[in-house]
């Protein structure tokens, strides 16, 4: 019969109307600035640069390889390579970004930079309260604004960060083992050479590379 569906709908909305006053669980929204919803773990807004330890520059994982700059679809990343090198967490000397700018008013949050980064250096932030009075300069983030600690990364994406930390720790152990093995081999070779030369001399202790503090598991 014409009209029964309308009546059913009216009853439903009336239930919602009255119910929203009775039970707070029905309310689907929160009063934002005072209350906040817990963000989902995979929330993503705009990229940031991860650094290990406490010194943003020393611990910067980015090696200024510029892959992200090339891959970025809206081309909002600008990188300038440094002239000198600094050691990375494995002790290998690497370039670092002298300049790293992201125009987040252009960024479309596609996460492609994160996907392509081979050094786990760029990750997505969950920060969304980015309004500013300056339309152009205020939304152009430079390297120092973008650098955020690994502890922050662990806080916003715990599962993912733990995996990456484990992987990096693994790499480091392997690298150390390899360095040890290399050193031993070198020492052996030296000994052999010494034995061959028959001039006994103490083998030089393998110098551990100046590496940053191990990533803290927050």
């Amino acid at each position: 019969m014409l009209g029964t569906g309308i009546l059913k709908g009216m009853v439903e909305t009336a239930k919602n109307f009255a119910g929203s006053y009775v039970s707070d669980e029905r309310l689907t929204t929160v009063q934002y600035p005072e209350e906040r919803q817990k963000l989902a773990e995979n929330t993503r807004q705009f990229p940031f640069l991860v650094f290990d330890g406490n010194d943003p520059l020393a611990g910067m994982r980015c090696v200024a390889c510029q892959i992200c700059e090339k891959e970025c679809p809206p081309q909002c990343i600008y990188i300038e390579k440094s002239k000198d090198k600094k050691p990375d967490h494995l002790g290998k000397p690497q370039f670092y970004p002298a300049r790293f700018d992201i125009d987040i008013s252009v960024c479309m949050s596609c996460q492609i930079c994160v996907e392509v980064c081979p050094f786990e250096a760029i990750k997505m932030d969950t920060e969304f309260e980015l309004s500013t009075g300056d339309r152009f300069g205020g939304l152009l983030f430079n390297r120092d604004q973008l650098a955020k600690s690994n502890a922050h990364y662990n806080k916003i994406h715990p599962t993912e960060a733990a995996e990456i930390d484990a992987k990096r720790a693994d790499e480091k152990i392997k690298a150390e083992a390899k360095a040890k093995a290399d050193a031993e081999a070198k020492a052996k070779a030296a000994e052999a050479a010494k034995a061959a030369a028959n001039t006994p001399k103490p083998a030089p202790a393998p110098q551990p590379p100046a590496k940053p503090a191990p990533p803290s598991a927050a």
């Binding site: 929203s20 309310l27 689907t28």
Partner: peptide
């Protein structure tokens, strides 16, 4: 306000 309440928001 009423439309909000019908949609379960304040």
């Amino acid at each position: 306000k009423v439309l909000g309440r019908i949609q379960n928001r304040p």
